[in-house]
Design a protein around this nucleic acid. Structure first.
Lengths: 138, 138
DNA sequence: GTCTGTGCAAAGGATTTGCACACCG
DNA sequence: CGGTGTGCAAATCCTTTGCACAGAC
């Protein structure tokens, strides 16, 4: 996704390269952490309808350009699907989010599938760590 | 939690052993998978107010008797906090949930903390795997 | 030009809040 | 009895749906 432009990425998955979709992708690309729908609307340089953002995110998530992230809040967050397979540490006090890499999904999935009776393959995963950050502790 | 009765468990964390709280714990204990607030209301043998269930779950989650589970749905699910540290495989097609054990949190947390600049300890974690189950594939 | 995608309005569903009453300890 | 918890009503927030118009290809 880094190599290709967002226009190309959209075409590659059969989606039209519309303004709202490009803006959503750009805002997510700029942000360092997962964003809420409201965050995306606010941070877009072009005015976007909230409903449109919902529909863009749904299409982008289905096309695997975007990933939905749930962090025990009352709303979902979204981030670009990246090949580095990063995850998050979330402060249960102030909500700050830090990314981290290094989760051996292959091993986890394999181990899980070995004992599973209902599933034969894993397409995606979510791993979130929760703690209290240093600022909130002191 | 298995050894102690729910009444004792509540007392141990300084919560009053009220009917609604006991019913919520019992329903969650009976269920094999995480339940929604509506599930809990429906499956309780005693009539429970939905608002009360929300407040019970909040208190129980804070006391670490219950864990909130987010599976990319538009509502949260809840399950008993257990010492076996189980997680879930979710079918993105039909929504069926299967539990699995075997996730080396200690290693994951340690590796994440080693590179973290904001956090010094991890209290909890969530690991969810997503795939399409065998029934939906065929 | 066609058909997908957007914007606006409104509905739907989940969760939270306010307040008087109930009940645990 | 005193203070925590509950139930009901209503508000609030997040997300989805319907439909006419706009824009990508």
């Amino acid at each position: 996704m880094e190599r290709k432009s967002f226009v190309e990425a959209l075409q590659a998955v059969g989606l039209r390269a519309t303004h709202p979709r490009l803006h959503v992708l750009r805002v997510l690309h700029t942000a360092a952490v997962p964003l809420s729908v409201d965050d995306i609307v606010e941070q877009s340089t072009e005015s976007l309808d909230r409903v449109t953002v919902y529909r863009c995110l749904e299409a982008l998530a289905q096309a695997r350009l975007v990933r939905q992230v749930d962090l025990r809040k009352n709303h979902s967050l979204y981030e670009l699907f990246d090949e580095h397979d990063h995850h998050h540490i979330v402060c249960t006090s102030c909500g700050v989010i830090e990314n981290f890499v290094g989760c051996d999904v292959a091993a986890l999935s394999e181990s899980a599938l070995r004992r599973s009776t209902l599933f034969s393959n894993i397409n995606d995963h979510a791993l979130e760590l929760f703690g209290v950050c240093n600022s909130c502790t002191t």
